[in-house]
Design a protein around this nucleic acid. Structure first.
Length: 213
DNA sequence: AAAACGGGGGC
DNA sequence: GCCCCAGTTTT
């Protein structure tokens, strides 16, 4: 896509949804990070069903470690991948206490040293909590960008980097904190993996594969 | 590069 | 019943 097409694309998404918010329930940087870790390979709705009760009991690293892996499992069992996630949350919380004074690091690389936090999670956290100019590339964003020709790449990392280049100077700075959500929501509701809803898609006119994906 | 983790929702 | 879900870690 050309720069003016990219501008038109995001302008249209903005028209539909001016200020999309992170749909995960959180009350602090810590609960946001935990919620994102829990959201791997599941949906926001699934995560939100479990986290309010969990965070009511443990909304800090100290309380989470005190709660313990087994109790955490009883809260998050319905989310899926719960054994791994319970273990990761405890390890992550312990690590925050031991290595970061109980505070969440704001450094991209430091974040990724925490259990259960990979590139995508670190990007989404920094973009959502601090509005930093970065995009977490998940399966929705990856599929959408490749189909649309917005930023092609064989791997999510390639798409992420091509996307940042494509968006530079094409999207106003104040919209950076929304573009990730715009892309994810559009991928989820219109540019779905199977049977994309091209007939209803607000930006089908800009898409090279509209109607034939 | 591929496998493992995993319950819930969509079709 | 089968496939996918705001992925990360281990093999």
């Amino acid at each position: 896509m050309k720069k003016d097409e990219i501008r038109a694309f995001f302008a249209r998404l903005k028209e539909i949804n001016p200020e999309p918010k992170c749909e995960l329930v959180y009350t602090s940087d810590y609960t946001l990070l935990v919620a994102i870790v829990l959201s791997a390979q599941t949906t926001d709705k699934n995560v939100n069903r479990a986290t309010p009760a969990l965070f009511a009991v443990a909304d800090t690293p100290e309380k989470m470690v005190a709660l313990g892996e087994e109790k955490i499992k009883t809260h998050i069992r319905s989310i899926g991948l719960f054994n791994t996630k319970a273990k990761n949350i405890v390890a992550l919380s312990r690590d925050l206490i031991n290595r970061f004074g109980g505070k969440i690091p704001t450094d991209f690389d430091a974040l990724q040293t925490l259990a259960g936090v990979g590139r995508k999670t670190a990007n989404v956290f920094l973009n959502t909590f601090y509005g930093q100019p970065t995009i977490g590339v998940d399966t929705h964003v990856f599929r959408l960008c490749n189909r649309l020709g917005l930023a092609k790449g064989k791997t999510p990392v390639e798409v992420e980097e091509n996307l940042k280049k494509a968006l530079k100077n094409a999207v106003p700075d104040e919209d950076w904190k929304y573009v990730g959500h715009w892309l994810v929501l559009h991928g989820r509701y219109y540019c779905t993996a199977k049977k994309p809803r091209c007939a209803d898609c607000p930006v089908a006119g800009l898409c090279p594969v509209a109607g034939k994906a």
